[in-house]
Each structure stands twice: as structure tokens, then as C-alpha cells.
């Protein structure tokens, strides 16, 4: 959260690590890593065409909220 995974943040999925977990994302140019189980807690929706090519991502860009905060704080 302190790393900027907040409501309205634009997130790009970059890659999964060995064995598909953890996942690497980019938030405003900075790479961060989340485990799949925690990444699941975010609510995201795709933005524009730019993220279309990232459609392989388990969950795509943008916007996280609510219950995730409890886990991530």
C-alpha cells in the first residue's frame, strides 16, 4: 500500500516468476512483486488499449480497493 497499490493506481503486469508465482507488476514505472494469493485481493479493471497486450495477465491493470487493504497493511 505504501508502495502505491491504491485505488486508481495504474498497474501493468510484467511477468510471473518460476512456477508462476510470485508476480511482477509495474506501478508508475516501479517494479514490485506480489504473491498470487495477495494479488488476488485487488480489484482491477483494464484500461485502454495500452493494456490489451497484457491480456495474458491473471488480473489486469488499474484500481484496487477495499478488502485488500486489510491484508496488505
Amino acid at each position: 500500500m505504501v508502495l502505491g497499490l491504491v485505488e486508481g493506481a495504474e498497474v501493468t503486469f510484467v511477468r510471473a516468476s518460476l512456477g508462476g508465482d510470485p508476480l511482477e507488476f509495474r506501478v508508475f514505472g516501479a517494479a514490485i512483486s506480489l504473491r498470487r494469493e495477495h494479488a488476488r485481493c485487488f480489484r482491477v479493471s483494464p484500461v485502454g488499449a495500452s493494456s490489451a497486450r497484457d491480456s495474458s495477465a491473471p488480473r489486469d491493470s488499474v484500481a484496487s480497493e477495499a478488502r485488500s487493504y486489510q491484508d496488505l497493511s
Partner: peptide, 11 residues
Amino acid sequence: KNPPFILALPE
């Protein structure tokens, strides 16, 4: 339970 693993990945 597993703690949230949030890791900043520096360049």
C-alpha cells in the same frame, strides 16, 4: 498465514 510478500524490485 503467509504474510503479504510485497517486494520492491529495484532496477
